[in-house]
Simulated assay, not measured.
Amino acid sequence: MESWYLVAGLGNPGPAYERTRHNAGFLVAERLAQRWQAKWTWERAFEARLARVPRGPNRVLLCQPQTYMNASGRSVAAVARYHQIPVDRVLIVVDDADLPLGQIRMRPGGGTGGHHGLESVTAHLGTTAFPRLRIGIGRQPGAREITDYVLGRFSPDEWERLQKVLEKAADQIECWLDFGLQLAMNRYNGWVERPAERTDET
């Protein structure tokens, strides 16, 4: 009997938010869809773009909620409940300003870290016990207010580095689907690529 898995990449819809740091979750979902040659469809009932992909004995739903970040949980919960997907097979992919660009971290559950998308998913699923994959985007040194930063676009250098991160995040998600959470965490959590160290010439 096949099992359903849900991989929901969070972000904000529309051209104004394309390639912004806050849309790292969207970008991972798009990388998977590209890798799997999956076709997106707009499904009004779920307020989401969805792509259905067979993978071995299972089926995977890729999801991009179109509700805007702060209401992402409404879409995620609707998809999960309709397809009767248990929360331990619902993976949420989000940006994380507390991780530097170049790091990824998968966890089986935990807090929201103040991330409004995770707060919404937690509220609508009624639990924090869902796996999540955090994509590091870093933050501006010394800045406490990060709204403008996370809604800003990646610089050309950051965008180039991000491509390796997206590939590794896709690898980690495939590992999670095929072999489970523990192996995916052990094999992929941490640095994808460390930034080059700066040296002062004397």
Results as ranks from 00 to 15, higher is better:
143 A>Q: 15
41 T>V: 12
57 P>E: 15
120 S>H: 12
81 R>L: 08
163 Q>K: 15
53 V>T: 08
152 G>I: 01
54 P>A: 13
66 Q>N: 03
19 R>Q: 09
202 T>G: 14
167 E>G: 03
17 Y>P: 00
49 R>H: 14
175 C>L: 12
115 H>G: 01
130 F>T: 01
148 D>Q: 10
183 L>V: 09
156 P>C: 03
12 N>T: 02
25 G>I: 03
157 D>H: 08
48 A>T: 05
22 H>K: 07
119 E>P: 00
11 G>P: 03
56 G>M: 10
82 Y>Q: 01
5 Y>N: 02
174 E>T: 14
20 T>V: 05
98 D>S: 07
67 T>A: 05
29 A>P: 00
173 I>Y: 11
53 V>A: 08
88 D>K: 10
31 R>C: 02
193 E>G: 05
19 R>T: 00
202 T>E: 15
154 F>M: 03
62 L>V: 05
99 L>Y: 07
127 T>L: 14
110 G>F: 14
185 M>T: 07
101 L>M: 13
42 W>F: 13
55 R>Q: 13
63 C>I: 04
74 R>E: 11
11 G>L: 03
55 R>N: 05
132 R>A: 09
71 A>K: 14
37 Q>N: 14
94 V>T: 15
88 D>L: 04
199 T>A: 14
131 P>I: 10
147 T>N: 07
79 V>H: 14
23 N>V: 08
30 E>K: 04
70 N>D: 08
124 H>V: 01
31 R>L: 00
123 A>L: 11
186 N>P: 02
111 G>H: 05
156 P>F: 08
107 R>V: 02
197 E>G: 02
71 A>S: 10
185 M>H: 11
163 Q>V: 01
187 R>I: 07
13 P>Y: 14
178 D>I: 02
111 G>D: 04
